[in-house]
Design a protein around this nucleic acid. Structure first.
Lengths: 350, 350
DNA sequence: CTGTTAGCGCATTCAC
DNA sequence: GTGAATGCGCTAACAG
């Protein structure tokens, strides 16, 4: 049974409802928005509601946006999908956004050109607030300035960006990495491999400064123990499970394999445990493994996975709340920081 | 160095640009939209562009939306985050959306009330098109009707919903499941466990009809081999890695453990392999494992993971293209279906 | 308590 | 080739 094509009459507007309920458009607006500062008698209210329902009236967001000069949407900028921590961020934004009647739009920034497009779109005011959780590198300082000068409330996830023009969310990882390395050295490890993200590793091997709290902490900690940073043990592989497996298998197959692996993502760390076991190695006696980030899986692997991460797991409601606070109560200056230092938790894999 | 708070002068409008360039707002509009049907001399064009740049003019989307009666955004409705296949969908939508100048908004539907809110918001025309990839159960038939009567182009991912009022994307899994079961039985398996999604399993145990192609195929295949469906081997655990591990460990610890496990997600299947190994079992000789869905990891596990899935992996550009086709060339009736039947690929784990 | 009015910023007729 | 005028649908002043 094929459904009838709707009779393409134009959809009803507030004027139509006003006419049907025999009130003014203003009253319709007040009723539809449930405004309590306007005293509308229940009789009138019901008449409007009934007319709206009968006509199938639904307010038009575009018009509301234009008039209110607010979109009631926030934008989450990420570098790509499949990263657990960003799923958490998105979930938190959805959750607190719902409470405020806000929707979420996502934007993927994985190249300079997509960064340019994204910034332009943001400047067109598609959203009342932004969480910059990825692609920061492609956005760059100039892009950040564009966003700041567009005067749009923003929260940036970064350990290095100054809180100037926006709020920032930091997860200082240095101490956790140092603790992890200390722990590994104390238990007799001498050659520690680093499974990093593409960027980190590329910059390191190119001899450029590496903008990574985590990697810097790793290098510092090694040096403070008088241990060398072996370039052949700094490899990419943290960006996915398959990548992690291959990278771990590769370093463990080296003539002088590491006796410990620190991975910049916990999901790659899990893969590293697999790889070790598949090579006939025992974790942790032959090789220790440490992951970065909180994933539930860490508790069910054998051995359980030692991790570095924020104490209270991955929940970003505080970041979301802060963004909405700034959207709802705009003020300039007074930029805030949230800091959630990571700690090292030794479990079975070390 | 603290950045100056911007002088909160109102942002420039096309009128301001027109004045600065000494042209009319119409000309500004034509230039900004790069319209080729209007012949604008380069001199004029450059003057407008220069004025726009100097004033920092950026067109306002809300106004454009209202006037054009289109938002140039599509909406992806999902049931939650962390599902690889949805990441693929989001990536595809972003990709082809970018080509058409469209943005993406996401919506999480994980309860009847969030479904209601989502539908209402969609009816407010926050997006020109919708991909319903999750939460379909909470939306329900009535919700679908609301969306259809709102006359908004839509693509629904479902194996059961009729293509009536919207396009549908199907992934028939029955044949693949049958092939998997056939393969398992042929290689001597007699008790096959099913790691399912929460809903599937709950409905099964409640004795209600299970709206799952995959599960139905599983039951049919077992029966055609004269094998019973053991209720104690139909367990939830496909919704996550940790869940999968626990569920697999539990069934494998049963007095009469299964000799094969079919998991409704490949990531839980990977966990099942872990669990088996941790219990001292060998895969596949002691227990075979099959996963549903394409993940790169399947190739690096030991043994490699036998999976059921679409032949060409997880790519939804065809779905995205179809949605945009309907948005850009609206027509009623003629609802289309894309079907990507799953096949079974035997690898090391069977 | 409710109606009238005036835009929000833009894209699009229709004159010239 | 360009400009003046109109209105998308709604909300917020301001009257009454």
């Amino acid at each position: 049974m094929r459904r009838q094509a709707p009779v393409r009459t134009t959809r009803p507007t507030s004027r139509d409802v006003a006419a049907a309920a025999d009130v003014s458009v203003a009253t319709v607006s007040y009723v539809m928005n449930g405004r309590t500062d306007r005293r509308i008698p229940d009789i009138t209210r019901d008449r409007v509601l009934e007319a709206a329902h009968k006509l199938g009236y639904v307010p038009d967001r575009s018009a509301r946006m234009l008039r209110r000069r607010s979109t009631e949407q926030v934008c989450l900028v990420i570098g790509g999908f499949g990263v657990p921590v960003l799923d958490q961020m998105a979930a938190s934004l959805h959750e607190v956004g719902d409470r405020h009647g806000f929707g979420l739009i996502t934007m993927v920034v994985n190249s300079p050109s997509s960064a340019r497009r994204g910034i332009d779109r943001l400047r067109e005011r598609v959203a009342d607030g932004v969480v910059l959780a990825g692609g920061l590198h492609h956005v760059g300082a100039a892009g950040l300035d564009d966003l700041v000068s567009a005067d749009i409330p923003m929260m940036v996830l970064s350990n290095s960006a100054p809180a100037d023009g926006f709020d920032v969310y930091r997860e200082p990882e240095t101490d956790a990495v140092r603790d992890a390395v200390d722990h590994l050295v104390r238990t007799g490890r001498r050659s520690i491999a680093y499974l990093g993200h593409e960027r980190e590793v590329a910059e390191f091997h190119a001899g450029r400064p590496v903008d990574s709290d985590r990697f810097a902490g790793f290098v510092d900690a090694l040096e403070s123990h008088g241990l060398p940073v072996r370039p052949d043990l700094v490899v990419p592989g943290a960006d996915g499970r398959a990548e992690g497996y291959r990278a771990a298998a590769a370093v463990l197959g080296l003539p002088e394999p590491p006796d410990a692996i620190i991975s910049a993502s916990s999901r790659a760390a899990v893969s590293a445990i697999w790889a070790a076991r598949d090579l006939g190695l025992t974790v942790p006696s032959d090789v220790a493994v440490v992951g970065a980030g909180t994933i539930p899986e860490a508790q069910v692997t054998r051995p359980t996975l030692s991790t570095m991460g924020p104490d209270d797991g991955a929940d970003f409601s505080d970041a979301a709340e802060m963004l909405f606070d700034r959207i709802l109560h705009p003020r300039h200056g007074d930029w805030r920081e949230i800091s959630r230092p990571w700690t090292f938790t030794a479990r079975g894999s070390t």
